[in-house]
């Protein structure tokens, strides 16, 4: 019997839909599984108290603070560097040797696994620059790690700004820098924001690189050179060493909710950008 094109189409399309549904179910399962087991253990004191007995008891407040500090600092460093790099690439130079070198560097940086960033951060920031296991070592390492994300998303956003805006701005007597800051960046802001928000997400999720650079201290940090333990590392240690499954699930729930919120913000920003370009 010969299979007709219509029949093979039905079969293949059914298979593709099956695959897509499985993917969606896996996503829902992961989120659901963590939240079902973890949400019940989250309460005010869990979020605001220090942890006791290696995390077996108490809360995760120092880890929340540590995560915010490391992530915040990383993005504060990476965002201006990334956006300025993009401005250079799109507005201040024509395509040539230098731009292709910069692009090559960015592409390679994007491909490097986080454990290598961890190794580098450890030997360079922690040991050679004597910053120790610290917020600052972790933040600098993560900043380099998310730089390509920020450059790529900003470049996409800046290239989407209509050429006519630039011409008008020049025509009205603005300098190149005024044109960039008052027109291009302003129009590209939602897109750049998306990149920054996604980078925040990557920093929060990262474990291997912070483990080798920020350390794993449970204390509240008292200086930029203090070691901290981020939420994802805390979750890893709790579950891996079987310290407390309850607290592991609760920490994972906090992580998942944060990531969901971040994705929603990125999505809304992207929609605003799309609306603007249209």
């Amino acid at each position: 019997m010969k299979i007709t094109p219509a029949a093979s189409q039905r079969f293949v399309v059914a298979f593709l839909w099956l695959i897509t549904s499985i993917t969606l179910l896996v996503l829902l399962f992961i989120i659901g599984y963590i939240l079902v087991h973890g949400l019940g253990h989250i309460n005010w004191s869990f979020l605001t108290e220090s942890s006791r007995r290696m995390g077996r008891e108490g809360g995760i407040f120092p880890m929340i603070v540590g995560t915010i500090l490391v992530t915040g600092l990383a993005v504060i460093i990476a965002a201006p560097v990334g956006v300025l790099t993009t401005i250079y690439l799109t507005e201040y130079t024509r395509e040539g040797k230098l731009t292709s070198i910069i692009r090559f560097g960015t592409d390679c940086l994007a491909a490097i696994p986080s454990i290598i960033f961890g190794l580098f951060g450890f030997v360079f920031f922690v040991v050679v620059l004597r910053m120790g296991f610290s917020i600052i070592s972790g933040a600098l390492t993560l900043a380099i790690m998310v730089l390509p994300t920020i450059i790529r998303t900003s470049e996409e956003a800046i290239r989407a700004v209509p050429k006519s805006y630039r011409e008008v701005s020049y025509g009205l007597g603005s300098t190149r820098w005024q044109m960039v800051t008052k027109v291009v960046l302003k129009s590209a802001l939602p897109g750049i924001g998306t990149g920054i928000v996604l980078s925040i997400g990557r920093c929060i999720s990262e474990t291997a690189a912070v483990m080798l650079t920020a350390g794993s201290a449970l204390r509240m940090p008292d200086s930029p050179f203090a070691s901290v333990r981020t939420l994802s590392l805390h979750f890893y240690i709790l579950s891996r060493e079987g310290i407390s499954m309850e607290n592991a699930y609760a920490t994972a729930s906090v992580l998942i909710i944060t990531i969901l919120v971040i994705n929603v913000i990125a999505y809304l920003l992207m929609r605003r950008l799309a609306a603007k370009v249209r």
Partner: peptide, 22 residues
């Protein structure tokens, strides 16, 4: 719905994947 869902999948921390795996 699908596109953002797959982006969320990319955002989930690797430790969570590992944990679910275990």
């Amino acid at each position: 719905i699908l596109k953002p869902a797959i982006e969320v999948l990319a955002g989930i921390p690797s430790v969570v994947y590992g944990f679910i795996g275990v």
